[in-house]
Write a protein that binds this DNA or RNA. Sequence first.
DNA 1: AGCAACTCATTTTTT
DNA 2: ATGAGTTGCT
Length: 719
Amino acid sequence: MNPLDDLNPHQKNAVEYSQGAQLIFAGAGSGKTKVLTHKIAYLIDTGAVRPENILAVTFTNKAAQELRSRVEEFVGRNAKYVHIGTFHSICARMLRREIEHLGYTKQFTIYDADDQNRLLKKIIDDTNIDIGGHKPKNILSRISYLKSWMTSPEEFKPRQGYRLEQLVKELYPLYQNALKRSNAVDFDDLLLLPLELFKQAPEILEKYRFIYQYILVDEYQDTNKPQFHIIDLLAKKHRNLCVVGDDDQSIYSWRGANIENILNFSDNYPECKVFKLEQNYRSTNNILKAASKVVANNINRTPKELWSRKSDGDLIVKIEADSDYDEAARIAAYIQREIITNKRKFKDFAILYRTNAQTRILEEILRRNNIPYTIIGGVKFYERKEIKDILAYFNVLSNSKDDINLKRIINFPPRGIGKQTLGIVEQFAFEKRISILEALNHIDALELSRRSEKSLQSFSSIIKRAADMRESIAFEEWTRVMIDEIGVRTYFKELGGEESIQRLANIDELLNDISEFCHTEDNATLESYLEKVSLSTSIDTWEDEKNTVSLMTLHSAKGLEFPVVFICGLNQGLFPLDRDNSEKVVEEERRLFYVGLTRAMEKVFLSSAQMRNRAGEMQYLPDSIFLNEIPSELMEINPVKEGVISCRCRKPQKSSGKVSFQTSDLKDKIVRPGSIVSHKIFGPGKVLDITGVGQNAKLRIHFRTCGTKTIVAKFVEVK
DNA sequence: AGCAACTCATTTTTT
DNA sequence: ATGAGTTGCT
């Protein structure tokens, strides 16, 4: 197929224009990915640019994969040479090659939120700084925000009387130093260090300018300051820069995304040509009208008019529920109704919400109704404890300075290295200015009991053996041997119980993942695998062909489309979420709502619940102001009456099979006096009486092994 | 050193 | 309603 075929005139103009800077305002569903795909193919096809000289930056790895496979349809194997990836993955790859200029080694570790948290906590412990009630996580998010605006520790001016800001001022430089000492970078560093590199070594900038002669950036409205500078520096010479975005879909200002980047693009590239794509191919007209009306309430935007040739379609359905449970039940009922009356499949539905905390109830109700679902987001696979522990071994093997990961595993599985022993080693390492792993080479110099010394020796030799093995066997095989060496499997097998079985299954899943990686990646190494792991998100691993309902936050839904979309929790305080009610914040929430509405192809359901359980207490919340912004003639309220919706009364049933490893088991324990239960330590026993209800009820249990004890319900298994 | 159970605070969104 | 951090027992 020709890259200029199958395009509307506006799309065609945008594809054809390939001389210099270009700004494409692409409304929701206007064929943005299509234009990017065709444009890359066009550049290659016409011989204007060689595939290896094209850089395309997308928002998620999934989008990158999709773009690559669509380009492949045009240009075949040439697609392989196009540089396509997210800002973070492209920067990580660049740093892997060049970071030594900045005093790190190529084996640097990418720290995730949990690693960052451990690192900051260690600093707080070591320095005895009193953080008086403030949480390390909050301090970190402030630091991250400063970094996303490129404010250095020295430049940051805390306001008088703001304790949190004083703490940030104190801890930010220490945190930064600690990262470097650990040969580690955080997500913000991935964007900042390339800029540092370009400044310190202009020849490297030249090199990449030479490689990336034509640059395309997707979702440009959500780029932040460092991202802007990276692109700007790279593009400055050839000035072949095509940015695509939609200011109405800018939803990441809280992490430093700067909408001005797109609104003021022509200030930096005065020669740029502006294109607008306003024909929507995704949604029915009613959906589009509603979305346009909503977003028109925002002041800070470029005016635009989305239109569609599609029919009006169904009205938007407003679901008015009594409670959050009722809301979930009604959603479940509408899904079943749509499946029966309109022959839809489970995978046609997405349920979108503002906060991850809303998943729990939805999950429970869907499960009770035998509706298969996949949760995108929440606890990610690679963040599970047992997985992170194994990955910590891998990280330590790659980067010997990584004390944070080393501390995770020095006593996992338990080998008798406690606080005391670790403290001695840490102190020694601190004094000698070496890493903990290096300190283990001098065990004899430490004053330790025979026992502790032996434990440390055994840990140290596991690491040494593993390091030696890396030389001689391939990565995939090495991981398998490693997992045996570590003894995690044996540990969980001996520990027993339901939870251990799940953990063992997850470890197998990890091995499968590694093996798949090794068979798809050209040169799979420990480092390249770790990089993939640290940069992958739950959206990236989402299998869209699986026939399940998708549950995710509105943020995660960006860039996706579904025939039927539910947006739930449309209550004032929850969506828009209240933290401070400045107009700027409401505008971003409104854009988020706009993003949600425009995900839908055929049908939208909007739900609110009068009463919701928030942080353990019931709250009455009025309807979201956003609901009033949709013209009433486009909406029908509770079209199906109460009697029809009865599924919430249904009895809990076992799930219809494996839904996903992210789905946790519903605990339907019914305990009464006389029930036989089993305790992990004390074994089987008979319940004598019960005080309280639910998971925290206290049970008096007579155990065969050790007589009568009082145990909290959640610690026993019902027979 | 290790685990069971308590207390207390906690709900934004994520690369 | 849950989880993290911590205590207190073995």
